[in-house]
Computed example of a mutant assay.
Amino acid sequence: MRSSVKGAKITGKLVAEDAVRMDGNFAGEASIDGGLAVGERGRVVAAVRARNLLL
């Protein structure tokens, strides 16, 4: 599972084959073949396509 850096602010398009854990802020579009886990302090404002979503 890949993870964003705590406190990071990312804007744009995210494409990933593996699972992703978001602990920072992400805005944009996400296409993830694995799952997306949004951490306790993570924030996602995006159109998301993922196999699994864990909030």
Rank of each mutant, 00 (worst) to 15 (best):
N25A: 14
A37Y: 11
V45P: 08
N52F: 10
G34W: 11
D23I: 07
D23Y: 04
E40H: 00
V20E: 01
A27K: 11
R51A: 09
G39E: 11
G28P: 05
A27P: 00
A30M: 15
E40T: 05
S31T: 15
E40S: 09
A19S: 15
G28Y: 06
V20M: 07
R21C: 12
E29T: 15
A37E: 14
I32Q: 05
G24L: 05
G34T: 12
E40C: 01
V45T: 13
G28W: 03
V38N: 10
G34C: 11
I32G: 01
V38I: 13
R21A: 11
V45A: 14
A46E: 01
E40Y: 02
G39S: 15
N52G: 05
A46I: 01
A27L: 10
R51L: 13
A27C: 10
A47Q: 03
G28K: 02
D33P: 08
V45C: 11
I32T: 04
R41S: 12
A27W: 04
N25K: 14
F26R: 00
L36W: 00
G34K: 07
R21V: 12
S31H: 15
R51N: 06
V45K: 14
V45W: 10
V20C: 01
N25Q: 14
G34I: 07
V20I: 11
G42L: 01
R43K: 03
L53I: 15
L53Y: 10
E40P: 12
G28S: 10
A27G: 13
D33A: 15
L53T: 05
R41M: 08
G39T: 08
G28L: 05
L36H: 04
V38A: 11
V38C: 05
A46S: 09
R49I: 04
D33F: 14
N25W: 10
R51K: 14
A46F: 02
R51I: 03
M22N: 09
A37G: 09
L36D: 09
G35R: 08
V20Y: 01
D23R: 12
A46L: 03
N52E: 08
A46H: 04
G34N: 06
A30E: 03
G28A: 10
A37P: 07
A37M: 07
N52S: 12
E40K: 05
I32E: 00
N52M: 06
E29V: 13
R49Y: 02
R21F: 10
N52L: 04
G28T: 02
A37N: 10
A37V: 06
G34D: 03
D23P: 03
A47W: 03
N25H: 13
A50G: 02
L53R: 10
A50E: 00
V20H: 00
A19H: 13
G24N: 08
L36Y: 08
R49N: 12
M22A: 07
M22V: 15
R21W: 08
R21N: 12
V48D: 09
M22H: 11
G28Q: 05
F26A: 04
M22F: 14
I32L: 09
